[in-house]
């Protein structure tokens, strides 16, 4: 977690960066980006594909994580389930950890725990990368 002190510094830096930009990037409702909550910088890890269908009344998701670097990267992730009004439809899930070897794509599937969940977010974090990127776990796959 980022402390309040760090947040205020970050806020200032981010505000300065936003003011320096000529146009702010628009947010689209149903892009992959709109479904991701990144906690910190993810330099080499991305979601390259995301599918969502309703199956048996439950929202079924398939997300493909991709490591764009040649070193092994570790990813912490979990899903947040939201109801039609945007409220949390379920308790916080446990964090999961997965490792992706160099250039690996890994598809993970999950299903919503309740029919009330009509939307979702993927929270992602890399322990190897803080605000300024960082080291990989291992140089060999």
């Amino acid at each position: 977690m980022i402390s309040a002190h760090c947040k205020s510094i970050l806020g200032g830096v981010l505000l300065a960066a936003v003011l320096a930009l000529p146009v702010a990037a628009p947010l689209h409702a149903d892009t992959i980006e709109s479904k991701l909550d990144r906690l910190g910088k993810l330099k080499y890890l991305k979601v390259s594909d995301l599918k969502a269908v309703s199956s048996g009344g439950l929202l079924k998701i398939q997300a493909t994580f991709e490591n764009t670097d040649n070193t092994t990267q570790r990813l912490y992730y979990r899903f947040k389930w939201l109801d039609k009004d945007g409220f949390n439809a379920w308790d916080d899930e446990a964090w999961k950890v997965t490792e992706l070897i160099g250039y690996q794509k890994q598809a993970i599937q999950t299903v919503a725990p309740t029919p009330k969940a009509t939307d979702f977010r993927i929270e992602m974090q890399s322990p190897e990368q803080g605000l300024f990127g960082g080291r990989a776990i291992d140089s060999k796959p």
């Binding site: 760090c6 950890v97 605000l131």
Partner: peptide, 27 residues
């Protein structure tokens, strides 16, 4: 800012200093 690395949602023995008691994230 360099010291403001985003902490990971994990629990390791190094997270708690000797004699310290703290609440953590159950998940």
């Amino acid at each position: 800012l360099a010291g403001c690395q985003t902490a990971s949602p994990n629990v390791a023995s190094s997270d708690v200093a000797s004699g310290e008691v703290k609440y953590g994230d159950a998940k």
